[in-house]
């Protein structure tokens, strides 16, 4: 934030969601975690059919309704009012999580506190002794979806790294994260650890590494864009 002459401008939340949305191909069944990932739905290109799943029993979830068109019976996992698209369906919780654990969901986008270089994710509790922890569907999604992408700020507000060698917070699932979209970069989680595939303009490799708690590889960096 106080970098002298910072030559880059970090993405805002909408831009992050938009960046991720561009990588979701037509035909995927996608679950968006509560919080920032929910926004991804707003940026999926209009000509692309992607089916959004909500763990409380909806496939084909649509955007939030206009204020005077709220149907109180249709809510998402974050308990916000949403809509159902033509072709959508409702089902019970056991069926919904069968879709998740059974590997039928192509992608789940989750927020996270930390992601480790082996793909471990911590996103449900900030300490082992937290009062009244709440896990919701995070562990089922993290363990069950075909692929997990994380959407998160590259560092904490205090500037601490969220990409780490090993998570300090309690794990949500071990070794599941495939890709991370931050306000600074797109990073794959590979057998060899974090591999940067894209960086925002003006940011140097050294600056990105300095904001990361584990070694970054740049041999797959796409410099074309």
């Amino acid at each position: 934030m106080s970098d002298t002459a910072a030559a880059f401008k970090a993405l805002n939340r909408d831009e992050m969601a938009n960046r991720l949305a561009q990588d979701i191909p037509e035909g995927w069944y996608v679950n968006l975690g509560i919080g920032a990932p929910t926004k991804v739905a707003d940026f999926i290109p209009a000509d692309r059919e992607v089916v959004i799943h909500s763990e409380n029993g909806i496939l084909g979830m649509g955007p939030a309704p206009a204020k005077d068109q709220v149907d109180p019976w249709i809510i998402n996992a974050g308990k916000q009012h949403v809509t159902l698209k033509p072709g959508g369906s409702y089902f019970d919780h056991a069926t919904s999580f069968a879709m998740i654990r059974g590997g039928h969901i192509d992608l789940c986008v989750l927020g996270a506190y930390e992601v480790a270089e082996n793909g471990d994710i911590a996103n449900w509790a900030t300490s082992a002794t937290e009062s009244a922890p709440a896990v919701g569907g995070a562990m089922d999604l993290a363990a069950g979806a075909k692929r997990i992408w994380v959407l998160m700020q590259h560092t904490t507000k205090q500037g601490e790294a969220r990409l780490v060698e090993s998570c300090s917070y309690p794990l949500t699932a071990a070794g599941v994260v495939k890709r991370i979209y931050t306000d600074l970069a797109v990073i794959d989680v590979t057998e060899e650890g974090f591999s940067v595939v894209e960086m925002i303009p003006g940011l140097t490799r050294e600056e990105l590494q300095a904001r990361s708690g584990a070694r970054l590889r740049f041999d797959r960096l796409n410099t074309a864009g």
Binding site: E55, H93, S96, I100, R101, V135, M139, A143, G144
Partner: peptide, 24 residues
């Protein structure tokens, strides 16, 4: 976990005393 909760209930209804899950 929410899915484990749902499945433990489903299992009770279906006469399955226990099951293995990847969750957690």
């Amino acid at each position: 976990p929410q899915g484990t909760l749902a499945e433990r209930l489903r299992a009770a209804g279906a006469g399955i005393p226990a099951f293995f899950t990847p969750t957690a």
